[in-house]
Design a protein around this nucleic acid. Sequence first.
DNA 1: TAGCAAAGTTAGACTAATCTAACAAAAGTT
DNA 2: AACTTTTGTTAGATTAGTCTAACTTTGCTA
Lengths: 227, 227
Amino acid sequence: MLSITEENYLKALFRLTCEEVGKTDAGTNEIAAQLEVKPATASDMLRKLKEKKLIEYEKYGKSTLTRKGKKMAMEIVRKHRLWETFLYEKLGFTWDEVHEVAEQLEHIQSPKLIDRLNAFLGNPKYDPHGDLIPRADGEFKLVEKKTLNDIAEGETGMVVGVSDNSSEFLQYVDGLGIAINRPLKVISRKPFDAILEIEVKGKRSSISTRLADHIFISREIKKSTKA
Amino acid sequence: MLSITEENYLKALFRLTCEEVGKTDAGTNEIAAQLEVKPATASDMLRKLKEKKLIEYEKYGKSTLTRKGKKMAMEIVRKHRLWETFLYEKLGFTWDEVHEVAEQLEHIQSPKLIDRLNAFLGNPKYDPHGDLIPRADGEFKLVEKKTLNDIAEGETGMVVGVSDNSSEFLQYVDGLGIAINRPLKVISRKPFDAILEIEVKGKRSSISTRLADHIFISREIKKSTKA
DNA sequence: TAGCAAAGTTAGACTAATCTAACAAAAGTT
DNA sequence: AACTTTTGTTAGATTAGTCTAACTTTGCTA
Ligand SMILES: [Mn+2]
Ligand SMILES: [Mn+2]
Ligand SMILES: [Mn+2]
Ligand SMILES: [Mn+2]
């Protein structure tokens, strides 16, 4: 069985390679940064994970997950997102509070627990941040996300997620009325100043394109028609 | 913040001193046995916990929890039992499955989580094994338990708990129809053979007095302890 | 009360995970 | 091609938690 630390390395590599569009491998420094450890520490661990056949890695080279490593990483991400959904749906946690606790809960070892939790939540497809929950059978579609910057003036989109999970960010956008599954209209754009005016729940605000880039809109899933 | 290991030592000491009637302290070997480590290991840790003012301990002496240590131990036990209740009530785990997973869940750090979980479960007083759940304010009444061996022939009692949480034991008594909050009648006793005949849900079985000693009947408040 | 067994401690070794400092390789720039 | 910067590795130290083996203290019992 893997240690919590080893699990965290697999998860980090998964996020960097399988969940970033147009990326297929990751360097040692990048992995170290993701985990907030020094490159020397990550270097050691990568050698160890290679020995366990969980990653492909050669000295001075980039790393990728093996099939086995990817399967384990996805299980951890699945647990993380199911727990986030539980905290949000059942215990009334807010958008920005769930992540930190899920970081701990994702390491609980019990296949039965996660099965039952999934059923209890009604087989959810997305977590409270709009991220796809990997399925138990290992099925996982990478969802290409459109951001608020892709919405034209006068158009309305549905908020489906964010790419910044920091408390500061989540609280700020919450203050603007922005939340999952809420319609958001782009009133006007000021390209010269890199700002756009939006309306959510009848309330107007101005946000920078930098911030807009972290807000995902719509999803290639049709929700009004049928499931 | 305490490590998981330190938390486990506090919990072990709590169980050995505050939850055993007529015991007020515990020896190093006893603590080591409870945690399944060698006495040498426990000896080291006891010194460390004394330094942190969580226990009273002198070389070659017995150990007890300080007020601070007891408060922390009770919080862990509270978390353990709330999680057991969650697994049993909400996720349909059986009596014998909850303990192992709760051993992991009890170490999750989030006061808000445990508050919300408690509310979600409707402020339960007892866990699925009939053990009292310590309250958030540190209130904890020690429940003196009467065993099946204290019930006379022809009398009926209510099953309120067990003192053996092993899977083997729980599955066996489950097979006899024995469960929490279920009436149980003692039909006859055979002291010569150390056996008694019982009836649960209309079904008769014979069990040894050795086994009967692990089944708690009725519930009487005897002594109360304050944090 | 002297001796021995049980209970408890200390010393030394090991593993996992981390760090800093020094070094090596790869990549980028003139 | 030579130099520089970035990236990555190795060596050595540190901390937490564990073990075994050897030692010490306590306390029972003959
Ligand atoms: Mn983690
Ligand atoms: Mn999420
Ligand atoms: Mn534990
Ligand atoms: Mn219990």
